[in-house]
Amino acid sequence: MKRLPLPLLLALFTAIPPLAIDMYLPAMALMANDLATDIHKVELSVSAFLIGFAVGQIAGGPLSDRIGRRPVILFGIALFSLTSVFLINVQDLDQLLLLRVLQAIGGGMASVNSAAIVRDRYQGKDVAKTLSLVAMIMMLAPLIAPLLGSLVVRFGQWRDIFTLLSAYAFVVLMILSWQLEESHPPEKRQKSSPWGNYLSIIRHPVARYYVLALAFAFTTMFVFITASSYLYLDHFGQSSDAFPWLFGANVVVMMTMNRLNMILLRRFSSPQLLFAGILLQLGATLALTLLFASGQPSLATTVTLIAFSVGSIGLVAANAISLVLHYFHHISGSATALIGVSEFCLGALFGYLWSLLHNHTPLPMMLMMAVSACLALLCVLLARRVQHSDKVA
C-alpha cells in the first residue's frame, strides 16, 4: 500500500502535545471540584506538562542523533499512551501533576524529532515551507481539541478525555510503526556528547538568539493557554460550550499565518518573515495590556487581539526553526531539542509567575504576554545585529 505523505505522518504525532494540553482546558473547573482543589492549582498541570515536555525533548533530541529518529519517536508515543491510561484513575492533585509530567516526557521525546526529520530530508527554504505545511495539518488538533473536551464534559466524565488521548496515541503508534521510515542513517549519527552539542548551539553567535526569540514568542502563547480558562470562563463568564469557539479563533489565525508564510517565502526571506511575525505579536499584546490597564475591553476585542498575538506563531515558528537548523545539519535533533526545552521551560516559568501575580484581573496575564513578546523582539534584533556585523567584517 502507498505510504502516507511525510508531512501528514509528522503532523500525526506532532499533534499529540496540543491535544494533551488543549483538550482538557474546558474541564478544569470540573477537575478542580472532583479533586477537591482550586482551579488555579489545576491550571498548574499545564506548567507541569510543559516541564515534562521539555525533559522529553532534551532527552529525545540527542538520543535520536545517536540511534535514529524512528525508535525514539515510537518509544515516546508508547510512554504517552500508557501514562494516559493511569491518568484516567487519578485521585488527587499530586497524582495529576506527576502523571502529567511523565505523559509529557513521552510526548516530548516523539515531537522533538518532527523538525529533525524535515531537516534530514530538505534544504534551505524547503525546510521552512515543509514545517509550515506540517503545522497547518497539525493545527487541526488545537482547533478541535477544546471542542472534543467540551463534548466529553457534556456527555461523559472529564476522565474520558485521557481515555481519548491514550486511544489516539495508540492508533498513531500503530500507523507510524508501519509507515514511518528512518531518516537518519547510521553513517550520519553523532556519537559526541549531547552536552557538547548543546554548548555548540548556545555559543553560536546567531543561532542562540533565534532560539531565544522563538522561545519567548511561544511563551507569550503559553501564558495565554495557562490562563485561558480563567480569562474566558471566569472573568468573561463564558460557558464551557463557548470555550472551544473562543479558543479556536487563535488556531484559525495561526493556520492562516502558516499558509501565508508558505506563500510569502517565495518573495521574502525567513529572517524578514520572522521579524514581521514578532512585530505582529508584540503589537497585539501591547494593545491588550493598554486596554486592560485603562478599562474593560469587550470580549470580541479581547478574542481578536489574542488571536493575532497567538496566531503570529504561524509566521514565527517555521522560520525561526529553519534559521537555527541551517547551522546544525548533523545535530538537528539536539538543535530541535534545545529549541523545545527553551520554549517549554520559559513557558512553564512565565505560567508559574502568572499564578503568583494573579490578582483576579486579566492585567497580570497581559503584562506577562507583553514582556515575553518584547524579549522575543530584542532577541531578533540582536541576531540581525550580529549578522550585519559579520557582513560588514
Rank of each mutant, 00 (worst) to 15 (best):
Q157E: 11
W158H: 01
R159W: 02
F162T: 05
F162D: 05
T163N: 15
L164E: 03
L165V: 05
L165P: 01
L165M: 12
A167E: 10
A169S: 13
A169F: 09
A169W: 06
F170Q: 03
V171Y: 01
V172G: 00
V172K: 03
V172Q: 03
L173H: 08
I175P: 00
L176N: 01
W178G: 07
Q179T: 00
S183D: 14
S183G: 06
S183T: 11
P186C: 13
E187G: 14
K188S: 15
K188A: 15
K188V: 09
R189L: 13
Q190G: 11
K191A: 07
K191Y: 03
S192Y: 07
S193H: 00
P194D: 12
P194N: 06
P194L: 09
W195R: 01
N197D: 15
N197Q: 14
N197G: 15
S200K: 08
I202D: 02
I202T: 02
R203Q: 04
V206R: 12
R208I: 01
Y210F: 15
V211Q: 12
A213N: 10
L214E: 06
A215P: 09
A215F: 05
F216R: 14
F216N: 13
T219P: 01
T220C: 14
M221F: 14
F222T: 01
F224A: 13
T226P: 08
S228I: 11
S228H: 10
S229R: 02
L231K: 04
Y232N: 10
Y232A: 12
Y232L: 12
D234E: 10
D234N: 00
H235A: 01
H235F: 05
F236D: 09
Q238H: 07
S239P: 00
S239A: 00
S240F: 05
S240Q: 04
D241W: 00
A242R: 03
W245D: 02
W245M: 08
L246C: 09
L246R: 06
L246I: 12
N250D: 11
V251L: 05
V252W: 02
M254A: 09
M255L: 12
M255H: 00
T256D: 03
M257C: 11
R259T: 08
M262D: 09
M262I: 07
L264G: 07
R267W: 12
R267G: 13
S269G: 07
S269Y: 06
P271D: 08
P271T: 12
Q272M: 08
L273A: 13
L274I: 13
F275P: 06
G277M: 07
